[in-house]
Design a protein around this nucleic acid. Structure first.
Length: 270
DNA sequence: AAAGACACCTGGGAGC
DNA sequence: TGCTCCCAGGTGTCTT
């Protein structure tokens, strides 16, 4: 589910509801996530105030004085705010009881998500090697040209590699490559500067568009307020095999690249 | 160093 | 209706 736009949608939806509140209690019903939830997490958070809610790539960072909780939503995770207590449903693995009021509920059917506390998120092993934020000014043509130089990997896999650029997953890699007219399998190092510059613009454009629609809900994504995202309606190629290309009407092709389903227009993308 | 395969897990949809 | 099989928004780890 959650790529950068979905995580950012979650962050924006929750920020004003949780920042400034304290952790009154923490209920861990299922600690077996991607990595086990630390047994001392409750003790660490109890009574501490949420100073900020940030995002880095696909990670949410809940800042406290002295440390941060890293939240990853994996493939199927959601983090929702509940104004009142509600009985837990399936896969409601962790509840944050907030003070003076409210609850935060982490739900994740596939349990690929994670909750990890650390003193310094910038130095955390999962964040330390992340590439630039794609919507930051530092992610530009110069950067992508140098990051692609000499690389033989497929450009789509390259974009989905978080150490190259953070937060781009399968949906938005497909969509950005469509907008840029580049085939998913093209070797990263064999794309000229001009086309990479177009790709940078396409990435920023598709991510900003998706943010404007509250992200993409394929099946189960909901933001912090429980509402789905509507960018699915704007997807040009993702999960549309054999449908006509919106630009030229040629049938969209599905092809596995790096073990991930990829979709492109063989006429518009070269 | 880089690229590829595999692992983790549940649920939904397709096909029979 | 019910069974089996395949696939899914991610990414760390192990193997070539």
């Amino acid at each position: 589910m959650p790529e950068l736009p979905e995580v950012e949608t979650t962050r924006r939806g929750l920020e004003s509801l949780v920042v400034g509140k304290s952790i009154a209690d923490l209920t861990i019903r299922e600690p077996r996530l991607r990595w086990p939830v630390a047994p001392d997490l409750r003790a660490r958070l109890l009574g501490h105030r949420i100073a900020a809610l940030r995002r880095r790539g696909k990670y949410l960072l809940m800042d406290f004085t002295g440390g941060s909780l890293l939240v990853h939503l994996g493939m199927s995770g959601t983090l929702r705010y509940l104004p009142e207590a509600a009985a837990p449903r399936a896969h409601d693995h962790v509840d944050f009881h907030l003070a003076p009021e409210g609850w935060l509920r982490f739900n994740d059917p596939r349990r690929f998500g994670s909750l990890q506390y650390c003193a310094d998120p910038a130095q955390h092993r999962l964040l330390r090697h992340l590439g630039p934020e794609p919507l930051d000014a530092g992610f530009d043509a110069d950067y992508l040209v140098s990051a692609c130089r000499g690389r033989r990997v497929a450009i789509k896999q390259h974009l989905m590699n978080g150490t190259i650029v953070a937060g781009i997953g399968n949906i938005y890699a497909n969509e950005a490559l469509f907008l840029a007219g580049i085939r998913p399998r093209r070797q990263a190092g064999r794309i000229g500067r001009e086309r990479l510059a177009v790709l940078v613009t396409a990435i920023k454009s598709v991510l900003n568009d998706a943010l404007g629609h509250g992200g993409t809900t394929l099946r189960d994504f909901v933001g912090g307020d429980g509402r789905p995202g509507y960018f699915k309606l704007s997807l040009n190629v993702y999960d549309r095999p054999e449908e006509p290309c919106p630009r030229c009407a040629h049938p969209i092709r599905k092809q596995v690249v790096g073990q991930r389903a990829s979709y492109y227009c063989p006429r518009c993308q070269r």
